[in-house]
């Protein structure tokens, strides 16, 4: 496993990690509904730095999924600006990868064929993809499962396949919409640790949506706290827990402090 990690690209140089990669200002998204306009996102401004792990946390209807869709170029914003590396971010890009709560595997494609889907769509070199996807399969702990079909896998295994597919075309930014939310507590913890391992080995920028405050604190460099109706950014919390993160950290007073800070911002206390 260590060998596979070594073959993946190295973490970006330390100084580049502080450069703002994604910039959003006064982002607003209004949906027209049958009961009138719905403000899903109201005047949200932020920076996301290169190589950073950011979580969007908040209750249902706080606009976190909407914000993620905007970041993925999947929806049109109503107002405001959004850029990646200074370029307008208004359509899907191959250097941004998207992962959803459900694995969305195609049952007619084997595990390996599912992982190779991005490469097939983007017309990447077949030979290089075959090698890379094999490594990714091992990276997510599914070596030997390449010829299986999604219907033969458990929920956790399917999310692993989705994770490997997310990385297949080596996007720089990973947008993850409650990727492990449908999994049981134990599997989710394991997947979170694996995600951190992969993140620290590849230096990707991650934007992670969750409604689990503890999960957000455990994973992130910064947590964007969002409140609903209309969806607003209530505040940004710097997570100063040391890395690499380990499960034991959840026992530390600083961890609880951060969790309670965020709870307070959300007004749940």
């Amino acid at each position: 496993m260590a060998l596979d990690l070594a073959q993946l690209p190295k973490t970006e140089a330390q100084d580049s990690r502080h450069r703002a990669l994604i910039q959003g200002s006064h982002l607003t998204k209004i949906y027209a509904t049958s009961t009138g306009p719905l403000v899903a996102l109201d005047d949200v401004s932020f920076d996301i730095r290169e190589g950073e792990f950011v979580s969007l946390v908040g209750p249902s209807g706080c606009g976190k999924s909407t914000l993620l869709s905007l970041l993925g170029g999947l929806e049109e914003r109503s107002e405001g600006t959004l850029t990646l590396n200074g370029q307008d971010l208004d359509r899907p890009r191959p250097d941004i990868g998207f992962m959803l709560q459900t694995a969305v595997l195609f049952p007619w494609r084997s595990v390996m064929e599912n992982i190779r889907l991005p490469g097939a769509i983007l017309g990447l070199d077949r030979k290089a993809q075959a090698e890379r996807c094999q490594e990714l399969l091992e990276l997510v702990g599914l070596a030997g499962f390449g010829d299986r079909y999604p219907n033969e896998l458990s929920g956790g295994m399917r999310q692993r396949v989705a994770l490997a597919r997310l990385l297949a075309h080596d996007p720089d930014v990973l947008l993850m919409d409650e990727p492990f939310g449908a999994l049981d507590e134990f599997t989710r913890e394991t997947m979170n640790l694996e995600l951190l391992r992969i993140w620290s080995a590849t230096g990707k920028t991650v934007v992670f949506v969750t409604h689990n405050i503890g999960e957000a604190v455990f994973l992130s460099d910064r947590v964007f706290v969002m409140t609903p109706r209309p969806g607003r950014l209530a505040g940004v919390v710097e997570i100063d827990l040391p890395r690499p993160r380990q499960t034991e950290m959840m026992r530390e007073p600083r961890y609880s402090e951060l969790v309670f800070d965020i709870r307070h911002m959300l007004g749940v206390d």
């Binding site: 899907p92 191959p94 959803l100 969305v104 889907l117 769509i121 075309h169």
Partner: peptide, 14 residues
Amino acid sequence: VEPNAVKLMRSLTA
């Protein structure tokens, strides 16, 4: 078709 599958394809610039 599952909306999420379409979303996935769109995100991959298909």
